[in-house]
Write a protein that binds this DNA or RNA. Structure first.
Lengths: 137, 137
DNA sequence: TCTTGAACCTCTAGTCGCTAGAGAGATTAC
DNA sequence: GTAATCTCTCTAGCGACTAGAGGTTCAAGA
């Protein structure tokens, strides 16, 4: 049996975060000591690793909750699981696309000012005037 | 003079958000009507456009506050302004790099399951086992 | 001038995913 | 037995809003 600190050490998830996940119903200890301290088993460790890894990959806790529910209720529910993963991947691709547009725009804005001392910075001007932008953002 | 609703229409910033910005000290109305309603002038509209555009480009409100302070206190402070913009650009590039790693990993995980009905989905397995991952994330 | 309806006011609380801290009690190693 | 470390619950804070309650003011038409 593992204490919450041991769980934290093994997964890299901080102690208060584990308790937070418990509050959300994502994980629960197998039991408690006489002194009310949480004790987890192998299954709990696996569950926490799952959550930690999903979070590292950027899935929301709502998505994690959904995946856990699917795993528990209907094992082998490929369609829903693949849909959640595909949605997440699409979200990531959208964010990459948006960030690339921002990157290009900021590069353009940064090049606009030759930094003459005393003159107002062209960057501020470019920020104030959306009409001067290349693409939509 | 513009009402808060007019400001919202012209900049696309929602009314409660304008009030929120006011609470943070980023913008203030030029005055109030006898009935306590906010009234803004051209300068306020410019300021709000600036904030809106900076936000669209992903700058934090803290960065916006810093830029506004620089503009007010020392016009032509190129160095600081360019530094803020460069920091932001570096942050965006870092986020793009991270998202690309996630994208690759999720693609790999998604390909791992051939979706045999009844069998546990390999995606869940891949999520549970960080050791099976290619890169660091 | 009066009335209606839209816009406006302040205030509180909720979102997401944690994180920090207070103050008290439990466990473990020596 | 004692000291050090862990753990407990609870509350509040972060950023950047958003939603809603309950009440007031404005602008336009009759």
């Amino acid at each position: 049996m593992f204490s919450i600190g041991e769980m934290s050490r093994r997964t890299g998830v901080k102690v208060p975060t584990i308790r937070y996940y418990e509050g959300l119903g994502l994980i629960a200890p197998e039991g408690r000591t006489a002194g009310n301290q949480r004790r987890y088993g192998r299954a709990g460790l696996g569950r926490l690793s799952f959550i930690a890894h999903a979070r590292e990959l950027g899935l929301s806790l709502a998505a994690v909750r959904e995946l856990i529910a699917l795993e528990d209720r209907k094992p082998g529910a490929h369609d829903e699981i693949h849909r959640i993963a595909a949605d997440h991947l699409a979200g990531i691709r959208g964010r990459i696309a948006r960030l690339r547009r921002l990157e290009a725009e900021l590069e353009r804005i940064g090049r606009a000012c030759e930094a003459r001392a005393g003159a107002p910075c062209r960057i501020l001007h470019a920020l104030a005037d959306h009409g001067a932008c290349d693409g939509a953002h």
